[in-house]
Design a protein around this nucleic acid. Structure first.
Lengths: 125, 125
DNA sequence: CTAACTGTACTATATATATTAATACACTAA
DNA sequence: TTAGTGTATTAATATATATAGTACAGTTAG
């Protein structure tokens, strides 16, 4: 279900957080859907259950999922407004692109292209 | 010269790397300009000289600056092509923005706005 | 009730990274 | 020669990441 790169410098739990959100954005996971249990997911990607638990706790902290002890983990309703600092985190990356000689149009094209790529995997059921 | 947030989770040396690049992009630092010495900069922002040295070493590794033992550190010529993975790093951030309900136009507008803000501090001498 | 499944908590360990600290070395320029 | 460069080394500390094993608390199906 999720693809983890164990050699990446991005922590495993962080990769999981990103992929769950991406799956929701793409409609592969819908509000009310159950996520795999901590132990099952840990077994399938061959990491420690604690690592998966950490990812789920972070997702719950962000309000993305709801966990119920004894029952499982469900995708939460998508909030109307999300407090995100994603925009601010783009600043050093865009500085990089400018340094690399990209024009304003090229930068926005890159953003648009990535946007489309994310939406590409969308499930239009 | 540089503003460091000691409470940020971003490592000090990484903040320095970003700010040097930003200053170059804005024209505040030009090829051939000298950067403050490791010890002076360390004293002015009140961090260990080794931390500044690490930032300079990273910048040299990226080809942004040239260091000469005994002389100092100079801003390098801006290369024609820069190998950057900044675009790929934008992917999880744009996923965040989509999750937060941003449309494609809003995402590209954010990128454009940040681009302008970076250029705003430019020195058009 | 029992068994099997949920998430959670805790301790211990290992590794890597980040930072400080102090010292020493090699080179350059006044 | 002296004062200023960057660099290297070693040690110590703190934090983040991940594993491992165990145990606890709640839920659900038999």
């Amino acid at each position: 279900m999720f693809k983890i790169d164990l050699r990446s410098s991005i922590p495993i739990y962080e990769q999981l957080v990103q992929q769950v959100k991406r799956s929701i954005v793409q409609g592969l996971l819908k509000p009310g859907d159950a996520l795999p249990s901590v132990r099952k997911l840990a077994a399938s990607i061959e990491v420690n259950p604690n690592t998966v638990a950490k990812a789920y706790q972070e997702l719950e902290r962000q309000g993305v999922i709801i966990t119920v002890r004894g029952k499982g983990t469900l995708v939460n309703d998508i909030p109307k407004t999300v407090d995100t600092d994603a925009a601010e985190k783009m600043r050093p990356l865009i500085t990089e692109l400018i340094y690399a000689g990209k024009t304003k149009e090229e930068v926005t094209d890159i953003a648009a292209k990535i946007y489309d790529e994310i939406k590409e995997g969308q499930n239009n059921a």
